[in-house]
Nucleic acid binder design. Structure first.
Lengths: 202, 202
DNA sequence: CGCAATTTTGCGTGCCACGCACTTTCTGTA
DNA sequence: TACAGAAAGTGCGTGGCACGCAAAATTGCG
């Protein structure tokens, strides 16, 4: 039964909303199928069917299965950037970053899909690679915010990109370790503790 | 003209040597073609032909084009591990890591292929992802050495993997920035400076 | 030399990404 | 409300990729 996603009553035009709905439906369908039957047994055709859309349409949204699975986690990037922008300007950068990541993690409520994605990334290096590919884009965004904050140049200086990438990497490695360890302790604590152990001087 | 690689007079059996030679020949062929005509115009068939081998054989060595290009840079991992093991045990970890990376970078002589791979990674996120996928494997190896050094557990503790991954990430981001900035200043200095700005406490 | 182990190769299969043209659905305006 | 244009969805065809399988070629050793 092809269950197209119908939700998100808010939004601009119907067109925009439907488009976004289809995109997230495809992403979630891919994730769900991967969790149910294992990544190897997920074909593009299945994902499309699960989202109630033609196979060809799938590739109008994503250019690979891997992208579909990991893309749904990309919203976090913008979230982190916003949270960082909201921190007081005189706060030390790394501290601000810590708050931003923790806040983005808990908002709006902790997303179980994040754990699923991490699990998949742990067992399929191809998916891990795709995840990091996304992180690179997110890091670029975050780097501009860091540059703004620290009065550096996101293009010419090493610092913004380095800080952004290291922050994402710290978060990812910590999160994966947390998942691998059972995931019973509070995540936020683990992330805070890990971030506190890392320094990146300007 | 299919130019199979004939070199590396040292080694165990002839079989082993030939196999390794084919592998590096394929990797270098992929890299050369990518540099010459652009990554998009490189087919598996071309790589195989360039290495003087059948297309089917290519997939006996690599399971994707991306892997072929980036694999030739994986020897560095073992190198870094060796260099780290050679550092005095009482030396602070991060300092030892810095030395290890710098040493591995300059040995035996700076490899131009490294720059080519970095350039490709900069313009093709797919290749960047593959590069990081390899780094994950290298980081795992390095993590065991770090665990040995610091008396921690590479499986249960976060620290070894975090330190290893952050070291690789710092190196990669710095190297890419160095390449993007023209690559005229000494690389070793850039890496040393970047590493010195990063801290990872146990 | 001749045999066994290993590697290379050819072939067939299933899957995937995407260009192109056509159909369907939506939106703003008369 | 009707309609024309825009935007999204779809079907089809093409080129390419990864890999299982079994036959052929190559290598190492007694």
């Amino acid at each position: 039964m092809g269950t197209a996603a119908r939700k998100e009553p808010a939004g601009q035009g119907l067109r925009e909303r439907k488009k976004k709905a289809t995109r997230t439906a495809l992403g979630l369908a891919a994730l769900r199928l991967a969790a149910e039957r294992g990544w190897a047994a997920v074909r593009v055709e299945d994902i499309a069917a699960e989202a109630g859309v033609s196979p060809r349409t799938f590739n109008n949204y994503f250019s690979s299965k891997e992208e579909a699975v990991m893309a749904s986690g990309a919203d976090r990037a913008e979230r982190v950037r916003e949270e960082l922008a909201a921190r007081p300007p005189q706060e030390p950068l790394w501290e601000a970053l810590t708050h931003a990541f923790v806040a983005a993690l808990a908002e709006p409520s902790f997303d179980p899909a994040t754990v699923l994605r991490a699990r998949l990334a742990l067992t399929h290096s191809q998916l891990a690679a795709e995840q990091v590919r996304f992180e690179a884009g997110m890091a670029a965004i975050l780097a501009t915010e860091i540059a703004r904050r620290t009065g550096t140049d996101a293009e010419r200086d090493l610092y913004p990109r380095l800080a952004a990438t290291l922050a994402f990497t710290t978060f990812r490695v910590t999160f994966e370790h947390w998942v691998r360890s059972g995931g019973d302790t509070p995540v936020a604590d683990a992330v805070r503790r890990a971030m506190r152990r890392v320094r990146v001087d300007p």
